[in-house]
Amino acid sequence: MGDTLALPDYRDLSPDLVKRFQAIGARETILEIEHLRKDFTGRNGDGAGMPPVLGDVSFQVKRREFICVIGASGCGKSTMLRILGGLEPRTGGEVRMNGHSVSGPGADRGMVFQEYTLFPWLTVKKNVMFGPKMAGQGKDASEAEALQWLDMVGLSERANAYPHQLSGGMKQRVAIARALANYPAILLMDEPFGALDAQTRCQMQKHLLQIWKNVDITVLFVTHDLDEAIFLADRIVVLGARPGRILEIIQVPVDRPRHQGQLLSPHFLAVKNRLEQLIHPEETPDPEEMKDLPLVRMTQVGDEAEP
């Protein structure tokens, strides 16, 4: 792409955005990742000699920033998120959340996964009450809390439904409400809309931006969808594979508030063009996938599908 359109430099920021990034930069850092490294060694050491899943990843996240992490498959983006969430140990480096080293899962880091993880035996309301109850809150307090968050994601009417009665998009909205009910400092999202159809996905992105605007929450959002990353993020962390490492951190030059019309704006396309270059450079394609199909013909001459 880009062979017919003259696109602006993806690093051009409007004066408004320059101000916004300065303001974000002045905020306190809530998540610090320093020289993060992850090796996979199988039980028999069969991972030995392989490049690490994550080589040397360092970046910082400021309060109320929206960061997207993007990269080709196998770049370790999900692994990184799981390490930040405390679900997997790291083999090197340091992760600090509000200044404290991360050593396991905790309620300060809410997570939303791609697969549906609502508890099927609990109603929507009780799913959202789960976090507050684990923290020792009483029934009434956590119920009030849950209803407030369900209101926020527009599902208060389904409070007494069971998860299997909800659509995929609704399930993920409840999952977001459930994570937020713990008042986490950061929301770690691992391709949360990956299983949804395109339309629902768009709607969910809008919902998420609205929630983010109205709640004091920082978001770290892993995706492999370029449009999604650009549409949502302040900054995009682009990871490369084998070993997983940061290729570039892009400040998205698209103005806020975001809307669907921007998907074809020059700045949007400029970033997309840059992401394409970073993620799919010329030399990486898997040679097996790139082979031409053999020329076998099963139709008759004169019955052409295209000239």
Binding site: P105, M111, A179, N182
Partner: peptide, 15 residues
């Protein structure tokens, strides 16, 4: 039991 449910519960603060 899907491990994902256990992980989700852990990130919600369950001990």
């Amino acid at each position: 039991l899907p491990a994902a449910l256990l992980e989700a519960a852990q990130t919600l603060g369950a001990r």
